[in-house]
């Protein structure tokens, strides 16, 4: 039985899809059988980040409405053979997903995959609710700025309220990913540090990804940055993937030593 992990944030544009794509590849390269699902109905993006946009025939709504079967809609990644991708539908109606259909689909995927990685839409509307309600774990992506942290806090507050796991008395395991940190700005006191964000959100850290131009070029070409060697952001993603599987590894040293040391203490606590 696989694990459902939802990548979410509240605020849009903080790097959810990029995170999902890179972690999907990372986990697949660690030998996990992974399926990445884009739940951002109407604003499909994960396909381009994974470089699979030309291979889409059917999407998640086609599967749910029975226009095709699951195996027809699943796209096998070009490079990571353990990775499959289920694209969002580009229909205008973003509220088209139905709870029982979502449940049916996710239950079926859980049977045949080790990890079901869901890219949640921004916001706290029905799309978000569908992507969280069967989640075993949630990765909350936040950039170190006031709007993103505020929205992350709000989302953290409602995850358990919307989750089936919480209804059964269990808790959704939650971790923070701090994205796009600029160590020079943190050191100059002009950006919230890792410690600042963690103190406010009061959840354990699972990864810090530096602001890195390689991510933009990777998205341009449709080859996730995690494949690159000697790139800080790629190393960050590789380590997050291993931490998701329970390994305890050091955080990438992104210059801001003090902040990272605190973060390190946080996770080994």
């Amino acid at each position: 039985m696989g694990t459902i992990i939802t990548v979410t944030s509240g605020k849009g544009g903080v790097g959810k899809s990029t995170t999902t794509a890179n972690l999907a590849v990372g986990l697949a390269n660690l030998g996990q059988k992974v399926v990445a699902i884009d739940f951002d109905i109407g604003l499909r993006n994960l396909d381009m980040i994974l470089g699979l946009e030309n291979r889409i025939v059917y999407d998640v709504v086609d599967v749910m409405e029975g226009r095709c079967n699951l195996s027809q809609a699943l796209i096998n990644d070009k490079k990571a053979k353990n990775l499959y991708f289920l694209p969002a539908s580009q229909t205008k109606d973003k509220d088209i997903l139905q709870r029982d259909k979502v449940k049916e689909l996710l239950t079926a995927l859980k049977e045949s995959f080790d990890i079901v990685l869901i890219d949640s839409p921004a916001g706290i509307e029905s799309g978000f609710e569908h992507s969280i309600f069967l989640a075993d774990r949630a990765l909350i992506v936040s950039t170190p700025d006031v709007s993103s942290v505020r929205d992350a806090d709000r989302v953290i507050g409602i995850i358990d309220a919307k989750s089936e796991k919480a209804k059964n008395g269990e808790e959704v395991e939650k971790h923070i990913i701090i994205n796009r940190i600029k160590p020079e700005m943190v050191e100059a006191g002009n950006m919230l540090s890792i410690d600042d964000v963690l103190n406010i959100l009061a959840l354990p850290l699972i990864g810090v990804v530096p602001d890195d131009e390689h991510i933009i070029t990777a998205t341009n070409t449709g080859v996730p940055v995690i494949y690159k060697e000697n790139v800080q952001a790629a190393e960050s993603y590789r380590r997050i993937a291993r931490r998701i599987l329970g390994e305890e590894i050091e955080f990438v040293n992104i210059k801001a030593k003090k902040g990272l040391f605190g973060a390190l203490k946080g996770i080994f606590r």
């Binding site: 700025d145 505020r150 709000r154 507050g157 919230l192 540090s193 406010i200």
Partner: peptide
């Protein structure tokens, strides 16, 4: 004060309010 410090203070106060509402 550094702008990060201001951000932290503003967030802490704002969230204290919002969490109560929640």
């Amino acid at each position: 004060q550094s702008s990060a410090g201001i951000a932290k203070d503003r967030l802490t106060i704002m969230l204290a309010h919002e969490r109560v509402d929640c």
